[in-house]
């Protein structure tokens, strides 16, 4: 085995490894994540966030536009506060928009659903750090069943 062929084979080896890595990067993992690149922050307060987690997606009409970056309890009444990183490509949500915590499918993961609101002359656009005023909390199954039984008792 001459040095030249050995170097050639090592070159082939490294090239194969790079090809594998590129395949993993482009085809397998979501490097084209919408949270990659420039983002801005929005916050929203909920009564109950259910099973929402950091890195849960933020979707508009089912399309991922960002991710949850931080979850904390804020203020005097310990309200759950969700911080989201939204891609700057989608930087024109009016302040009338609604954030809801939804579930994908019956057993799926929870995500934040953003619904853009109406726009007129008095409505401003949400900017970095702004709070989304209208929120719908997660639906907790136990509460739902409780309410259902309660309303049955009324009749």
């Amino acid at each position: 085995m001459t040095t030249r062929t050995m170097e050639l084979m090592v070159g082939v080896f490294v090239a194969a490894a790079i090809a594998a890595l590129v395949f993993l990067g482009l085809q397998v993992a979501n490097t084209s994540d919408s949270t990659r690149g420039e983002t801005y922050t929005l916050v929203a307060k909920f009564d109950n966030i259910g099973g929402l987690k950091v890195r849960s997606p933020v979707k508009v009409g089912g399309v991922v536009v960002g991710r949850v970056s931080r979850i904390s309890l804020e203020g005097e009444y310990y309200e759950p506060m969700v911080e989201m990183q939204i891609s700057t490509r989608y930087n024109a949500f009016p302040e009338t928009s609604t954030a809801s915590i939804l579930t994908s499918g019956l057993l799926g993961e929870q995500y934040v659903g953003l619904e853009p609101g109406f726009i007129d002359d008095f409505v401003e656009m949400l900017a970095e750090g702004d709070e989304i005023p209208n929120t719908n909390s997660a639906i907790v199954l136990e509460n739902l069943i409780g309410q259902f039984l309660f309303s049955q008792g009324d009749e």
């Binding site: 490894a17 090809a19 594998a20 890595l21 395949f23 993993l24 397998v28």
Partner: peptide, 12 residues
Amino acid sequence: PLLAFMFSAVGI
């Protein structure tokens, strides 16, 4: 690590 990348890629 390079071999592990190849292994995963080929496995997928």
